[in-house]
Simulated scan of single mutants.
Amino acid sequence: MTGRLVADPASHCPDQAARTVVAAAFAAISSRYVLARHQIAAAILDGNGGIHLGLHVDAMVGRAAVCAEAGALSAARLATSAPLIAVAAVRYPKPTETAQARIVPPCGLCRELLLDHAPALRAVVHDGPEARLAPMADLLPHKYVGTKWPTAPTRS
């Protein structure tokens, strides 16, 4: 916990599902932020109303780092087989930054991962002054389709 006042970006979300996941991600990163180690938290809302959290875990070797969305996806799949509805990630500002916490879209790798496991998932993204839920497929219009799985997973 940093001890400074940082505004919750959920106030920029007109949609209740978006507000819910952004507020949960903000609460998580507000309590777990550590400079150069944990800067982003993510939350996933499932079809039963459950919230699943993930924390960005940085590493000396960048490739070993784990994105918050991957952690939230893992937590969700450990807890439920319900469909996954919405995801949001919030970046907490560094002590040297004057900016507030902000909603960040999933990186390209997370877009691929989330679409592999939840094809109907929507992500909270900023669209002007407000945030909105966008279909994850719109964020990755040319998703890689391999042959590892003969059909889409039955759990989404």
Rank of each mutant, 00 (worst) to 15 (best):
A17H: 08
S31T: 09
A23H: 14
V61Y: 06
R32E: 03
S11C: 03
D58M: 14
A43H: 11
A27N: 06
V21Q: 07
H56L: 09
A24R: 10
R37H: 13
A28G: 11
A7C: 00
R19E: 00
V34P: 00
A27F: 06
H56K: 07
V22M: 00
V6K: 04
A10N: 02
V57P: 00
V6L: 07
D58I: 05
D8Y: 12
L5Y: 08
M60Y: 08
C13H: 03
R19W: 06
H56T: 11
R32N: 13
A36G: 04
R37S: 10
M60F: 03
V57W: 09
R19Q: 12
F26R: 05
I40F: 00
R63Q: 10
I29P: 15
C13N: 05
I40C: 14
A36N: 14
S31M: 02
D8Q: 04
Y33H: 14
D8K: 10
A28Y: 06
A7W: 10
R32H: 15
A7Y: 07
Y33S: 05
A7T: 00
R63M: 04
A28E: 15
G47E: 03
C13K: 02
L45Q: 09
P9W: 07
L53Q: 08
R19M: 04
P9A: 04
A28P: 12
L5N: 08
R37I: 04
I29T: 09
R32Q: 12
A7S: 04
H38D: 00
L55C: 14
H56W: 03
G54R: 00
H56D: 10
I44T: 09
Q39Y: 02
M60C: 01
V6G: 01
A24I: 13
A59S: 15
Q39C: 11
V6Y: 10
P14F: 01
A24S: 14
Y33L: 06
I51A: 00
T20N: 03
A41F: 09
A42H: 07
V34S: 06
S31F: 01
I40S: 02
G47L: 15
A59C: 08
S30E: 12
I29S: 07
G62H: 14
S31D: 05
D15P: 02
I44N: 09
A27L: 03
H52M: 03
A36V: 03
G49F: 07
A43I: 13
L45E: 13
L5W: 04
G47F: 15
V22I: 11
A10W: 09
P9V: 11
S30W: 08
Q16C: 03
A24F: 09
S31Y: 02
R37Y: 13
A23N: 12
A17N: 13
H52R: 06
V22H: 01
I44P: 01
V6W: 10
S30L: 02
M60V: 01
V61N: 11
I44S: 05
A23C: 10
H38Q: 08
